[in-house]
Design a protein around this nucleic acid. Structure first.
Length: 881
DNA sequence: CTCCTCACG
DNA sequence: ACGTACGTGAGGAGA
């Protein structure tokens, strides 16, 4: 029989974490009677996640009882100097306790003891009863309880993520056992608990001493053997402090709790009380969860829909602004099965499973006629209808695009999830209705029709609210003139797809196969054994344990074997180069040769999908397959491009890419005169930068190395540079990198000003913005954690640049599509790769396209510096350079 | 389902 | 003193 599971939760620590996780939204989380609820909300979400992960049989949430404990009697300043718990959090603790009781989860506190001691006592009890114990907390102190049967989960930045502390993990991380961790703390002290430890001893020294001598007592037993040093002196002088620290840090595992294990059995809770509590707190999302949870509790919304069939088609009477929703099961709408559709028009909802009806007169008229239709996901709907042979007209509002522009922190494309963000809980998520993976299926008619009816009505119900938000954000033009028109352009690109000749891929496949077999043999020979070359774990063992190559970098789970590492080991063993070559070819073989062959559809073409509401910056992404990362940097990789050919036998693949678009955007938004000057005069920008930062007189004096360095600095600037990052990229010292950067800002002073301002504005507003008012929210910009905050700061610098470049090419795409239509050209836009457009061009249109495309791209927007686009063309994508 | 690795701009 | 480049998607391994 499997071991029974006990889950122990440090309630105070979690409430505290939850409170600060949503601290920024403190004012948004207020119940109707004025109580703050942010910590309650987070707590419940973390609790749900952990219950789902652990699936315990028993559970206890422990809380601190009060300020005075046996530790404060031992040392009156224990936890002294701590800021008072804010009253906004304090008021939520009793409610959390009430919530737990209503959920059927035991909660407990004990006078004179901290939550830690309750957890320590119960975990020992559970271990002795032969249970598997999980402890959940935000506090590292509890790691001392880890053992073979007890895992300590520590919350990581954000909600939901945890790091698991087992004895092995602690040994790796700190080099000591869980119980030795107490002694380490005793030596180093604890700032937040306000006890000092030994002078000048920090985590490093403390762990080293304990690892060497086994325990605090061990350290002092061997004090005499130590060489005279400052450290020895400090250890001697602060012995009292260290011994006190040990007492304070030790969790009491025999506290007088009045609990027995059966008391902690997970209950079923009280749905009636829960409902009342959620209503009191105004927590709509939890109420909605309750409704879908309990059978009898089910709140049935009756939409009063009419099921459309062949027979009652004449009763379909559309009028006025209408809403339309087409359902397909699965993400890939080029292939997905049709499920049904729903229409709301003239105050009436119609639903049907019979999509063939959409090709009959009244519905075709509705879809292709003058009536304005609101939809969710124009592109998906357009492609779906196109498969049925219908080309819709007058789709005027896309709820998915609107929600993406308003706030793309949540990049969900589920209608239900998005509705929930706007406090509308009447419609469920697709996950709830259809399930996922193998279990995904269409439910019985009544459930399905209710879901479709709910979806179609939410589109219209939330429209004004979302439009108001767009207006408030000054995003009307971005929505009306860029994203919505672009959706149609992308739909057409996807429908056309790209012609691929399988023969050339098959040819490559056998060439690469032979090469891979050869390399495998040589590698196994050099290694002295066969192993799975594709397994980083096995490869690591061979390289670093068997062949004893120096370990350069470790990952969370073992040795790193990435290119970066292998490059440095090239001279250490001949096996390394063979592995690098194997890796490179194997990647091309699996992802591009085999992978692409699998995605060619029956028409001999590849129809990728562009995700328009995916990225944080406003770029597109491409999936199933990703055509935005087809190899180009190596000769072997490039061969893949030979398989992509023009539709017509003598036609061309035509490519046109922006030159340095991100740097030009930077020159524009920063207003830097020196950089603008360089672009206006048409210099090679990297050579120009080299000339300036290395103080040369003319671009002719720039050496290739200097140009390479300058280029890396230019890239670095766009990413929010650091001297470390630059030094690593160029393989130079940090000091040199720093000098480059200083010199750069010296030469381009307004770029420095721009970077500082970008961060400052993001801090004030909470988001960064592109030239077209596309937003990226940066909640971490004021984080206390240096790393988290620094990341947000670099993002604040990079997003407006990358995002504005995305805005620009999107405008170019829309304008180009318009021109192609206006001139009735047969050339088709088939791909977009961030700064590059690719067209499928009939032979006779080549000369027109050569002039038209760069012209449209260069004039997409007017910046303070010129935009330049370069062209290339050939009979295959490989030749379009 | 997560991690590592690597392809692109 | 902190430990770092920005944005993506896919395949294979191993739990």
């Amino acid at each position: 029989m499997a071991k029974e599971k006990m889950l122990l939760i440090d309630g105070n620590s979690l409430a505290f974490r939850g409170f600060y996780a949503l601290y920024r939204q403190l004012d948004k989380f207020i119940s109707p009677d004025g109580l703050h609820t942010n910590a309650i909300y987070s707590f419940k979400n973390m609790l749900d996640a952990i219950l789902k992960q652990v699936q315990p049989d028993y559970c206890l949430v422990a809380f601190d009882a009060g300020k005075t404990t046996f530790r404060t009697r031992m040392y009156q300043d224990y936890k002294g100097g701590r800021q008072k718990t804010p009253s906004e959090l304090l008021e939520q603790i009793p409610v959390i306790q009430e919530l737990l009781t209503d959920l059927g989860i035991k909660q407990y506190q004990l006078n004179d003891y901290e939550a830690d001691d309750i957890v320590g006592t119960m975990s020992l009890m559970a271990e002795e009863a032969g249970m598997e114990v999980t402890i959940y907390t935000g506090d590292r102190d509890l790691t001392q309880l880890a053992s073979d049967s007890t895992t300590v989960l520590i919350t990581k930045n954000g909600v939901g993520e945890t790091e698991a502390y087992t004895p092995e993990h602690m040994m790796e991380e700190y080099g000591v056992t869980p119980t030795q961790f107490i002694d380490v703390k005793a030596l180093m002290g604890d700032n937040s608990d306000n006890y000092p430890g030994v002078t000048k001893v920090g985590p490093k020294t403390a762990s080293r001493l304990i690892a060497k001598y086994g325990s605090l007592e061990g350290v002092y037993d061997h004090l005499d053997d130590m060489k005279a040093s400052k450290l020895k002196e400090n250890l001697q002088n602060d012995r009292d402090k260290a011994e006190l620290g040990k007492k304070l840090a030790t969790i009491e595992r025999h506290s007088p709790v009045e609990l027995a294990i059966p008391d902690l059995k997970l209950g079923t809770g009280d749905p009636v009380k829960l409902r009342r509590l959620y209503e009191r707190l105004g927590m709509k999302s939890f109420l909605a969860g309750l409704a879908t949870g309990g059978e009898d509790d089910q709140v049935k919304v009756n939409y009063g829909y009419i099921e459309l069939t062949e027979k009652n088609l004449a009763d379909f009477k559309p009028a006025g602004e209408s809403d339309f929703y087409l359902e397909m099961l699965g993400e890939n709408y080029h292939l997905a099965d049709f499920v049904g559709f729903a229409i709301k028009t003239n105050g009436q909802i119609y639903v049907s499973k019979d999509v063939a009806l959409l090709t009959e007169a009244p519905l075709v008229d509705f879809l292709t006629g003058d009536l304005v239709k609101n939809v969710f996901d124009i592109k998906r709907t357009y492609v779906g209808l196109h498969r049925l042979g219908v080309t819709p007209q007058n789709f005027a509002y896309d709820m998915l695009l609107a929600s993406y522009l308003i706030n793309n922190e949540n990049n969900s494309d589920d209608l239900g999830e998005i509705a929930h963000l706007y406090d509308n809980y009447q419609v469920k998520t697709d996950l709830e209705v259809y399930g996922k993976g193998k279990k995904m299926a269409v439910p019985e008619d009544e459930v399905l029709f209710n879901h479709l009816a709910g979806k179609v009505s939410v589109i219209g119900e939330l429209k004004q609210q979302l439009l108001a938000k767009l207006k408030e954000h000054e995003q009307d033009a971005l929505f009306d003139e860029i994203e919505q028109p672009l959706a149609f352009v992308l739909a057409k690109m996807e429908i056309i797809g790209m012609k691929v000749v399988p023969g050339s891929l098959v040819q490559l496949q056998s060439e690469f196969s032979a090469k891979l077999t050869q390399l495998e043999d040589s590698i196994y020979q050099a290694a002295g054994e066969r192993f799975n070359l594709n397994s980083p774990k096995q490869l690591g063992q061979i390289l670093f344990e068997k062949l004893h190559l120096p370990v350069i970098k470790k990952t969370k789970t073992g040795y790193s074997t990435s290119v970066e590492v292998l490059d440095q080991l090239k001279n250490a063993s001949p096996i390394v180069n063979m592995i690098l070559e194997y890796r490179q070819i194997s990647k091309i073989q699996s992802t591009y040769v085999k992978g692409l062959l699998d995605t060619i559809q029956t028409d001999g073409r590849i129809h990728s999908r562009y995700l328009q509401t995916q990225t944080a910056t406003g770029r597109l992404s491409s999936v199933d397959p990703n055509l935005q990362n087809i190899p180009t940097r190596t000769d072997e990789g490039k061969q893949i491009r030979k398989a992509f050919v023009a539709s017509e036998k003598d036609g061309y693949i035509f490519s046109c890419d922006y030159s340095q678009v991100e740097l030009r955007v930077l020159a524009h938004v920063s207003g830097d005169e020196n950089m603008q000057e360089a672009f206006k005069t048409g210099y090679d920008i990297h050579a120009h930068t080299a000339m300036r930062i290395f103080h040369l007189k003319s671009p002719e004096e720039v050496t290739p190395l200097q140009r390479r360095h300058a280029k890396a600095v230019n890239f670095g600037i766009v990413y929010g540079i650091s001297d470390y990052g630059l030094s690593k990229n160029l393989g130079i010292t940090r000091k040199q990198a720093k000098e480059f950067i200083t010199s750069y800002f010296d030469q381009y002073p307004q770029i420095k000003t721009y970077m500082d301002k970008a961060v400052k504005v993001a801090r004030e507003k909470g988001y960064a913005e592109t030239i077209m008012h596309r937003r990226r929210y940066l909640p971490d910009i004021n984080a206390k954690n240096f790393n988290v905050r620094s990341f947000a700061e670099r993002t604040a610098i990079n997003s407006p640049i990358q995002g504005s470049a995305a805005d620009i090419i999107k405008i170019a795409m829309i304008n180009l599509e318009k021109e192609l239509e206006k001139r009735q050209l047969k050339s088709k836009l088939v791909l977009q790769v961030h700064d590059e457009l690719i067209l499928d061009v009939p032979k006779e249109e080549l000369e027109t396209i050569k002039k038209l495309v760069p012209e449209v791209m260069q004039n997409a927007v007017k910046l303070d510096v010129p935009l330049i686009a370069d062209i290339g063309y050939g009979h295959t994508w490989y030749d379009a350079k």
